[in-house]
Simulated assay, not measured.
Amino acid sequence: MQVRTAIHLNRAPAMAAGAQIVLRKGEQLFDEGDEAEFFYQVVSGAIRSYKLMSDGRRQIDAFHLRGDIFGLEAGGEHRFSAEAVGDVSVVAYRRSRLEALIQDDPAFRDKVMTATLRNLARAQAHMLLLGRKTAEEKIATFLLDMAERISKDDEHFDLPMQRCDIADHLGLTIETVSRILSRFARSGLIRLLPASRSIGLCNRMALQGLNA
């Protein structure tokens, strides 16, 4: 999959410090074990990073949304795979140029530092969520986090991912995710539009109570 990334880079127009890559839904950006030659920033759309278990199950580690920086590794290989949730545009930066980039551009240095700390905080929160929270608490936490990351008013937003993605991120079945979302809607906590990924938060306080 690293070869495909290189092909995109060769065809993409050069940008100020990186190269733009356009991916279609389901297209892979890199695979687990690929050389971590580049790191990335999302321009539009969403990327999911994940691992496939030996029995074929998928665990989604994180969703990377507009502005997020990801793919910086401590070692020389990517520890997760990454693919487009829908149509996506990212900018790829050569890892070998990281030191020069942060020296030449203090604003970019601050972005990388903020992104690194934020990714660490989200990874810690995700570990707690998987290990200690009930299904209802997991979904309440997820909805509040997505509202904060996606929506300007935090009350209404369109999820970029499908329910199967949510299930694989939260360690639940798709049936459990659908059942709890419907229960939240019946209880007046959220508003769901039929055949839509649109979510309205109707009772934020109650959701925050589940998130505590």
Rank of each mutant, 00 (worst) to 15 (best):
residue 3 V to C: 03
residue 3 V to H: 09
residue 3 V to Y: 02
residue 4 R to A: 14
residue 5 T to C: 02
residue 6 A to N: 05
residue 6 A to W: 08
residue 7 I to S: 05
residue 9 L to K: 00
residue 11 R to H: 10
residue 12 A to N: 05
residue 13 P to E: 01
residue 14 A to F: 04
residue 16 A to P: 00
residue 17 A to L: 03
residue 18 G to C: 07
residue 19 A to C: 13
residue 19 A to G: 09
residue 20 Q to A: 13
residue 23 L to T: 05
residue 24 R to D: 12
residue 24 R to K: 15
residue 28 Q to L: 08
residue 29 L to Y: 01
residue 31 D to C: 08
residue 39 F to D: 02
residue 42 V to I: 02
residue 42 V to L: 06
residue 44 S to K: 13
residue 46 A to S: 13
residue 46 A to M: 03
residue 47 I to M: 07
residue 47 I to F: 04
residue 52 L to I: 14
residue 54 S to K: 14
residue 56 G to Y: 11
residue 58 R to L: 10
residue 61 D to Q: 08
residue 62 A to T: 10
residue 62 A to V: 09
residue 63 F to T: 08
residue 66 R to F: 06
residue 67 G to V: 08
residue 70 F to L: 07
residue 72 L to A: 02
residue 73 E to K: 01
residue 75 G to L: 04
residue 77 E to P: 00
residue 77 E to W: 10
residue 80 F to T: 05
residue 80 F to Y: 03
residue 80 F to V: 01
residue 81 S to I: 04
residue 82 A to I: 01
residue 83 E to V: 04
residue 83 E to C: 06
residue 84 A to F: 03
residue 84 A to C: 05
residue 85 V to N: 01
residue 85 V to F: 10
residue 86 G to A: 07
residue 87 D to E: 14
residue 89 S to I: 14
residue 89 S to F: 05
residue 92 A to C: 06
residue 96 S to H: 04
residue 100 A to Q: 15
residue 101 L to P: 08
residue 103 Q to I: 01
residue 108 F to N: 09
residue 108 F to S: 08
residue 112 V to D: 14
residue 112 V to L: 11
residue 113 M to C: 03
residue 114 T to H: 13
residue 117 L to P: 01
residue 119 N to A: 05
residue 120 L to W: 12
residue 120 L to Y: 15
residue 126 H to L: 00
residue 128 L to G: 11
residue 129 L to K: 05
residue 129 L to Y: 03
residue 130 L to I: 04
residue 133 K to E: 14
residue 138 K to T: 07
residue 138 K to C: 05
residue 138 K to W: 04
residue 140 A to Y: 02
residue 141 T to D: 14
residue 142 F to W: 04
residue 143 L to F: 05
residue 145 D to M: 09
residue 146 M to A: 10
residue 146 M to E: 09
residue 148 E to S: 10
residue 148 E to M: 07
residue 149 R to E: 14
residue 153 D to V: 00
residue 154 D to C: 12
residue 154 D to R: 08
residue 156 H to S: 12
residue 156 H to W: 07
residue 157 F to C: 03
residue 160 P to W: 01
residue 161 M to L: 10
residue 162 Q to Y: 13
residue 163 R to G: 11
residue 165 D to M: 00
residue 167 A to W: 02
residue 168 D to C: 11
residue 171 G to C: 05
residue 171 G to M: 04
residue 172 L to Q: 12
residue 173 T to G: 02
residue 175 E to P: 00
residue 176 T to A: 12
residue 179 R to S: 12
residue 179 R to V: 08
residue 179 R to L: 12
residue 185 A to S: 15
residue 187 S to E: 15
residue 187 S to C: 06
residue 192 L to F: 06
residue 192 L to S: 10
residue 193 L to N: 13
residue 193 L to C: 07
residue 196 S to V: 03
residue 197 R to Q: 12
residue 197 R to A: 07
residue 197 R to S: 14
residue 199 I to Y: 00
residue 200 G to F: 04
residue 205 M to K: 15
residue 207 L to Y: 02
residue 207 L to V: 03
residue 208 Q to F: 11
